Amino acid sequence: MVVIPVQQRDNVSNYQSLRSLFEKNITVNSISEVLATCNVSDDAQQIRDQMVFKDYDVIGVEENGMVIGYVLRDDLGEGTCKEYIYSFSPPELVSDSTPLLQTLFIFKNTERLFIIEGNRITKVVTLADLQKPPIRMLLFGVISLVEMHLYRIISEYFPEDSWKNHLTAKRIQLAEELFLQRKARNEAIQLSDCLQLCDKRDIVLNEQPLRERLGIESKSKGKDFFKKLEILRNNLAHSQDLNTQNSWNEMFSLIEQTEKFLEECEKI
């Protein structure tokens, strides 16, 4: 039986608490918009003109004071809205308390989500809403957790800076220069605190037993994963579109991979 030191257990517990903050306390409501509505008997072309003016892609359709479905702007033509109505399907409906991270995974199978508050459908979320600050905060937080876990694992796995064996002299020099700068500011740090994500990546990928414990099948797959993670982090840091170089589904898959990776980190 492996005995995990108390400090290590506490560290993992702290990371799990921080992870819980991102995963459970930020909900889909933070990126939702109030669902505008029309009546089933409204003229479809007039409603389309209003949607173009207000830049709505979708609005709800009411009958007898209840939202019973929705229409899409590009569908609307002659006749009434009733002729163009879509019924809500189960994959499109979520509770207002649904965690934001879970919302990302749900979007793998739909282009929009409608939010239920009580017994009423009141709000909507589209792919465009995934560019909003709460999503960026969530994703940056998840990536930060990856870096925190890697720092913890490297510090515990490589005593006396033995991780240097996996880096080039130039990368070590850059870390040492940053270390001296931060020490001059009286920051209580270790040299491993000054490693960049690319350094942590190389250390982990070059140590086969550690790589296997983290569930990384091969160096090439590990490099691909971390490269995509770095691109996403850079897009977040520079306020770029989150799917600039990848489709939304590829980004959703990346976040799923990251979640699995964090689960493996928490086991160490």
Rank of each mutant, 00 (worst) to 15 (best):
Q16Y: 00
Q8C: 02
Q16W: 01
I31W: 10
I4H: 07
M1W: 03
S30N: 05
V2C: 02
I4S: 11
F22R: 09
N29A: 14
V3I: 05
S30V: 04
R9N: 10
P5C: 04
L18N: 08
Q16L: 07
S13H: 06
V6Y: 15
M1C: 04
N29I: 14
P5I: 05
S17E: 06
S13K: 12
R9W: 13
V3E: 12
S20C: 09
D10L: 13
D10N: 02
I31F: 11
V28D: 13
Q16V: 04
L21E: 05
K24T: 07
V3D: 00
V3Q: 03
T27K: 15
S17D: 09
I4Q: 10
F22P: 01
N14P: 00
I26M: 06
L18E: 04
N14V: 12
F22M: 01
Q7P: 01
V28P: 02
R9P: 12
K24D: 09
N29Q: 12
V28Q: 12
L21S: 02
T27Q: 10
L21V: 07
R19L: 09
I31P: 11
Q16I: 09
R19V: 00
N14A: 10
P5T: 07
N29M: 14
N14D: 08
Y15W: 10
L21Y: 08
N11G: 00
L21W: 04
F22T: 02
K24W: 02
R9D: 03
Q8W: 09
S20V: 00
Q8S: 14
F22K: 00
V12N: 07
Q16R: 13
N11H: 15
F22C: 08
S30L: 07
P5H: 05
Y15P: 00
L18A: 05
I4K: 15
E23R: 12
S30G: 03
V28E: 04
D10G: 06
N11C: 06
I4R: 11
N11S: 11
L18Y: 00
S17W: 03
V2H: 15
R19T: 07
I31D: 11
V3G: 04
Q7V: 14
V12L: 03
